[in-house]
Design a protein around this nucleic acid. Sequence first.
DNA 1: GTCAAGGTCGGACACCATGTCCGAGTGAAC
DNA 2: GTTCACTCGGACATGGTGTCCGACCTTGAC
Lengths: 205, 205
Amino acid sequence: MSSNVRRPYDPAVRRAAVVAAVMAATERLLAGGVSFTELGIKQIAAEVGLARSTFYLYFSSKTELVLRLVEALHSPNWESSEGTPVDLEAITEAYRTGIAFFRERKLVLAAVLEAAAYDPEVGAAWEGYRRKFVQREVGLLRAEQAAGRTPAEVDAQAAAEVIIWGGFQVITHHVTTRGPERDDIIAQELAANQYYGVYRRGVRG
Amino acid sequence: MSSNVRRPYDPAVRRAAVVAAVMAATERLLAGGVSFTELGIKQIAAEVGLARSTFYLYFSSKTELVLRLVEALHSPNWESSEGTPVDLEAITEAYRTGIAFFRERKLVLAAVLEAAAYDPEVGAAWEGYRRKFVQREVGLLRAEQAAGRTPAEVDAQAAAEVIIWGGFQVITHHVTTRGPERDDIIAQELAANQYYGVYRRGVRG
DNA sequence: GTCAAGGTCGGACACCATGTCCGAGTGAAC
DNA sequence: GTTCACTCGGACATGGTGTCCGACCTTGAC
């Protein structure tokens, strides 16, 4: 670390910079209206200013590029389920945040969804991404049930899958195909659906 | 290797028979564990007993084959929204039927979902398929609101999208990745979620 | 039995994408 | 000036799609 002061470029840093440049270039090209499937390595490399063969010095395949894009969708904020209040307003706000998050990354999101459908590796990565949310949801639900606030008849696993899988689909489809005009309304409906449909199922609101 | 399809006199009938044979062969190959993307025209043609070039006498492209597969997912039963009672048991039963329907066709369903993600034409067809359900749901919701049984604050369009888009995702993902063991539980959760989350939102059950 | 026509075969082609490989060039470090 | 790491750019192998066409049946008409 301290011995190579004379080198202007730390190889690892430089490498990371190139990787980031490739990802940025990909997003830029996607912004031009091309779908990820239509996008060839040739075009991506050209956009960064690299030879096509040089691309393969940084990514072993197109699949690996997408896997990096999946990583770019991770947000540290969502990891903890602690301090998550179960009330309608808080849930609505969480959905607003989530929608805004994906809207900012909608091009990458669309590319990932596209690749996840036909590339098993990407599919597994995306599945793992969602699994975290399902598990967190199951935990929250069980806690609510233990506290007697959510009916014990609710199947926590199935309910969590319905909420997360369904919610992801609504958000991703909405964000990748429409403008932000109805973001708030969608957030409210998702939240109300979750709150009255699961957390306070059959309870007067 | 000659065609194993009998030749009825009527050219149109014979043509339809070949088309059907190709679709059946595709499903047969998918049953072998190959994904639709991996499946080449060459293999499909060979499975039917046709030359690859002959395939193109019946389908202009792989896309057209998928579009026919989308059509194969249509069920005449679902078109009418008349006589649909809004009670928890009826909704649960409807979900059970839907899940069973897609489970029987899960290979075709998986192929369609795969292609819809990267082929714009297929994507549009699948989008149209779902749109019918959304519209039907909006109609039902508005009627319930007019009758004063569903809160007026519910945004019918957004709620319908949440229910249909989300429900489709849950059902398709469940059916294409898991066995039938939990079909009933999933149906119950979807139904309860819809009933208490939208139709009788905030009403004691 | 002959013959024309519709339909099929099978392979060649053009095209394009991925991923591999390698010799030649370039620029910074020493 | 030499070395070394990196990059370039193009050739290759491979495999897919969709087109095209001449050589073949098989069928039905006569």
